[in-house]
């Protein structure tokens, strides 16, 4: 218990009258990769900032590496890497200089900073842009540079706030691979994401947050088993016919979710459910049977679809 990298209990964050994080408890163990999932405004970034020691906690308790962020913020920050939600690169410096000076903030020697800069630029495939200014880089390149920057101090703990938002699919897969390798080396990862596939790929354990609280906690597989059925039937109808059809579909499957553009029917046997739909004389424009995913857990727990 005490070897946990992060321990939060009844952690709260309040801005003026607004409660952004409303008494959450969680623990992150060494070498684990831990995810925060939640809709916009759920309090993910607020939580990450408290862990990153750049936002004082309002109440409850929080320890990182067994230290108190209020007292030993500097020491804690020296041992972790941070990828903030917005890149915040230094626009007055070049790509390579952004990494060099960032290493210097950690008191790493100049020669070592130079060595790591070369290595990290290669790691995120930006070596050919080393001497360019930062502003003209594409969004995805900036994101990759921010990730490289967070690794300059060889952190034990890496905080990633929506690390792959804005990356193209290929770049995301490359990044997942890089993060997986870091995990192999024993780095503890804490990330937030809106992408369910990312959470399934990267997280050993995750919590679903909503309105400042934790709605559920577990491994991706475990959450799917607990909060969803084995399969899901997706039905699409012509515009404006969703509501009328929903009434007719009443009672099919364990549960039914009405979305603006489609209807989801939760049942362990999707084909069986589709048969029943046809028997009732309902004729969707398109239908699809698939396995349950975290997306369905999310929908069930927050009543909202994920926003990209």
């Amino acid at each position: 218990m005490s070897d946990a990298v992060i321990i939060a209990s009844d952690l709260r964050k309040q801005f003026d009258n607004f409660v952004a994080v409303d008494g959450i408890d969680f623990e992150v163990r060494p070498g684990e990769s831990f995810g925060f999932l939640g809709p916009n405004g759920a309090g993910k970034t607020s939580t990450m900032r408290m862990i990153g020691c750049v936002s004082p906690i309002t109440s409850g308790s929080l320890t990182v590496f067994g230290l108190d962020p209020n007292v030993d913020g500097s020491e804690i920050r020296s041992r972790m890497g941070v990828v903030p939600q917005s890149d915040q690169l230094d626009p007055e410096l070049t790509v390579a200089e952004n990494l060099l000076i960032y290493g210097r903030y950690f008191d790493i020697s100049r020669s070592e900073c130079r060595r790591r800069t070369v290595e990290l630029l290669d790691f995120v495939q930006l070596s050919d842009r080393a001497n360019d200014q930062v502003d003209p880089l594409s969004g995805g390149m900036k994101r990759r540079l921010t990730i490289a920057r967070s690794l300059i101090n060889e952190p034990e703990l890496l905080l990633l706030d929506e690390p792959t938002t804005g990356l193209d699919p290929q770049a995301r897969h490359v990044l997942w691979d890089r993060l997986y390798r870091l995990k192999q080396r024993g780095v503890t990862l804490v990330l937030t994401t809106h992408y369910m596939d990312e959470a399934e790929q990267l997280c050993d354990r995750l919590v679903v947050m909503d309105e400042g609280r934790i709605a559920a906690e577990g491994s991706p597989r475990n959450l799917i088993d607990r909060y969803s059925t084995r399969e899901v039937l997706e039905l699409r109808f012509a515009i404006g016919e969703n509501d009328a059809n929903a009434a007719t579909l009443e009672g099919i499957g364990e549960r039914c979710e009405l979305l603006p553009d489609r209807i989801l029917i939760y049942d362990d046997d999707g084909e069986e459910a589709l048969g029943e739909v046809h028997r009732r004389g309902v004729d969707p424009v398109a239908s699809l049977v698939r396995r349950s995913s975290l997306e369905d857990v999310f929908l069930r727990l927050t009543g909202r679809a994920l926003v990209d």
Partner: peptide, 14 residues
């Protein structure tokens, strides 16, 4: 604007 100080404060700098 450039939020340089936010970035710096995420490191051991105070």
């Amino acid at each position: 604007h450039s939020k340089l100080y936010d970035t710096v404060l995420a490191t051991p700098m105070t």
